[in-house]
Nucleic acid binder design. Sequence first.
DNA 1: TCGTCCGGGGCAAACGTTTATACTGTTGAA
DNA 2: TTCAACAGTATAAACGTTTGCCCCGGACGA
Lengths: 314, 314
Amino acid sequence: MVTILDVAARAEVSTATVSRVLSTPEKVSEATRGRVLKAVHQLGYSPNASAKSLRTLTTRKLLVTVPDIANPFFSLIIQGIEEAAHREGYAVVLGDTHHDAEREERYGEMLLRREADGLIFLGHSMSKSLSSLTKKGRLAPIVNGCEYSPSLGVPSAHVDNEGAAFEAMSHLYGLGHRHIGVITGPLASPLSRDRLRGAQKCARENGAGRQMTVVNGDFSIESGIAGAARLFAQETQPTAVFCFNDEMAIGVLDYANRIGKSVPESLSVIGFDDIRFARYMRPALTTISQPMLDIGRETVRLLLGVLQGSVTSP
Amino acid sequence: MVTILDVAARAEVSTATVSRVLSTPEKVSEATRGRVLKAVHQLGYSPNASAKSLRTLTTRKLLVTVPDIANPFFSLIIQGIEEAAHREGYAVVLGDTHHDAEREERYGEMLLRREADGLIFLGHSMSKSLSSLTKKGRLAPIVNGCEYSPSLGVPSAHVDNEGAAFEAMSHLYGLGHRHIGVITGPLASPLSRDRLRGAQKCARENGAGRQMTVVNGDFSIESGIAGAARLFAQETQPTAVFCFNDEMAIGVLDYANRIGKSVPESLSVIGFDDIRFARYMRPALTTISQPMLDIGRETVRLLLGVLQGSVTSP
DNA sequence: TCGTCCGGGGCAAACGTTTATACTGTTGAA
DNA sequence: TTCAACAGTATAAACGTTTGCCCCGGACGA
């Protein structure tokens, strides 16, 4: 391996000068700079990242954990994160937690070992081992995306879930519906609870609190199908269904199709997220759009803000 | 920051012993081991990754570059990669190249700087700066996924694209079709060329080489729509369309629906990949299934094989 | 009694950078 | 002529690990 020493020897300068040429070129005279650069190219030198990290205590890497990489909602957020991080000269280390506490732990430890400068976690649960970091007075280099749990004490980028759910329901009441079914996500997440609160509030304001039926889902297509089955098994069937994400809505469309219910004639369905495939369903899915790329970019902005001290409160 | 020195001091041993307790515990007596472990927990010590990397010349990270993270095909492969890597104790650094040479370059340099132990690239183009590595006698720690360019000299995990395309076309001819439209991916990629070769071969063997029409796509839904528009603008319209991926097939379904062509009655459509949403389209999409997770896992297996010397030829 | 072997553990040298500090020679002002 | 200021560069000390080598003391066989 060719090191800074080899370059220094060939250019007949000290390693300090080589280092300066590479990081603060303006502090080196033109002539020397030329010689060093020439040596760098001739030898094909590239600085060793670990040595640099060790010296500077910085890695230029951001750790991102997500419950499910293959979910099109998350993958767009990741894309936004990657884009923003790359623009700022950071690389992204990606971890899939599968909602598994042990995996969260393993990835959390990476931060402790300083394998990354900060952590962005998507979803609502965070590695326990990091609580030691967040307890300190200053903000830890950790931010949350999509959800918001005030108790964690970390900044977060997310939409107004309660307001959005309120709007979705308003839309349905506006169409004249009275009996509305709601398929939620796991209620362990604040996100689902916020949306449920918004939906309930809207139902009450429309005087239809009793006619709203809530069933639980887990954001998968299959749970959308199962939810639809339960909703339509009731004595008074809902004429509209609000799903907390698009995949469950796709499941509802699928089930409706199978039992011969036509959408939108005899059933309205509204989803959440606006994933790319939503508009190519037949019928095209009505949905609440979330700016996934922007959420991703914003988490990066927040995290870098924490790192350089310009963001100081959750 | 608490270092190995602090632990050594507290446990009243040398740093060498602490290091051994953490990496080769069996070489340390039970009593000493206990004392060290106790000190580790009391101080909340976790070893600094950069220092370790510097010393061992190893990072336990795998760099993965992909043309489009948000593409459900790639995101499943990434999930397979992450799963396999995590199981082997490696973390994944993810880069989105957007098919952009400069980004490929930037990520390629990470390997040169030793920010990762190896590279998995999905797609067909590889950073130029890495050619210096692949030219050497031994195999570079680089593997390819999904495609295969013999000229690159790197191992690759991919399906038999030519054979699969042949099968897809066979299926259509079996249904009685004679005029078949084909929407390809960018012909710059060997993958597209392989599939095209398979399709052409099948057409010839069925004596329908002249009735097969080929138009170019870029794997996006929009290019599927555009391709369909061109195919159906011809004097003799195809009665079946074979798309080189599912998203373009979804575009064809969309276009057919808009011009009032019913599928599958008056048009057959077949896609490629079997992404999760394919089966929820109406009508459900017929498609060639690819084992995305397995392709991802296999790239990891190959790469680790190269790293430990058990894989020695592309 | 002596020599040999071995388990357990310490010493210290790397690994490849960055950067505070010190040094040198030149320039310009007094 | 003297000296301060400054630009440009070198010296060397970190950064936190791992690991080859050596040393010590006890066990064991001859």
